[in-house]
Amino acid sequence: MLSNIFSLSFLVSLLAGTIRLATPILIPALGQIYTQRAGILNLSVEGTMLMGAISGFTVACATGSLWLGLLTGIVVGMLFSLIMAWLSITVRANQVIAGIGLNILGAGFAAYLYRVIFGIRSLPAQIDSFQQINIPVLSDLPIIGQIFIQHNILVYLAFLLVPLTWFVIEKTTFGLKIKAVGEHPKAADSKGISVYRIRYSAVLIGGAYAGMGGAFMTIAYMNSFTESVIGGRGYISVAVVIFARFLPSRAMWGALLFGLASALQLRLQALGAAIPSQLLLMLPYLATIAALIFASKKAEFPSAYTLPYSRLER
């Protein structure tokens, strides 16, 4: 048993699994960096991911095009987060309550859509999901090739989004505006920045990423839809952002940490470890709490975090 754990093949499959399982947390987390930097805590990521998962899966099923499915997931994610944007920015509702409501709505609506579109069936509907890409020579490299170069294309796209997100937030005017409305909306407003428009954009970008993360689960990670397909990943990604102190590179490491916890659970279970699988299932959730413990004290939240903005108020 122990010798199995320390064997090379175990380590290789563990690390490859880590990267694969980090992806559906990394994508929504990067999106939430935009949203949270603009001062909005969007807890409805879980529901948004479910909507992305079901819509992406349905379109991929109907058209046979995985890319069209992915695009649909992104668009539906944006549409769903538009409700969050409206509630939190225009209506100025409590963001926690709005998030809870939208999660219940998203979960119910996704289940409804699946039932209406696919009916009751003994076997779940399945598609041919994104396959791992094989690059001659590179993919066959021992160890390195197995860990890094045997994933599907979306995994690489997700990790490419890390520098992109960093660039947009740190190096563009748009990024500066997002930070401004998150830190000091009044000052931003007086400088002629439309607080509403920037915040709406930030929530919609977050929704697009969440929808993409949801679609990843059904058309790239699995090849079917279940009501528990997201399994708390939306909430975990919100935690990752806080853990990462709103920085993309740290979010990547955070996501990898959760990927490792999930992969460890899967690998140990596959080995038939003496630890019961249900206890191992706790690992990613325990890791989330541990991460919050270590990160929250130091996290510098945007000054206007969770605070709605109104020109009427002083």
Binding site: I83, L87, V91, A93, N94, I97, A98, I100, G101, L102, N103, I104, L105, G106, A107, G108, F109, A111, Y112, R115, V116
Partner: peptide, 18 residues
Amino acid sequence: PFSVVDVIEGLIIIFVIA
């Protein structure tokens, strides 16, 4: 499907917030 009830529940919260 029962999920219609779940959708109604979610909608109720959102409408009431609004």
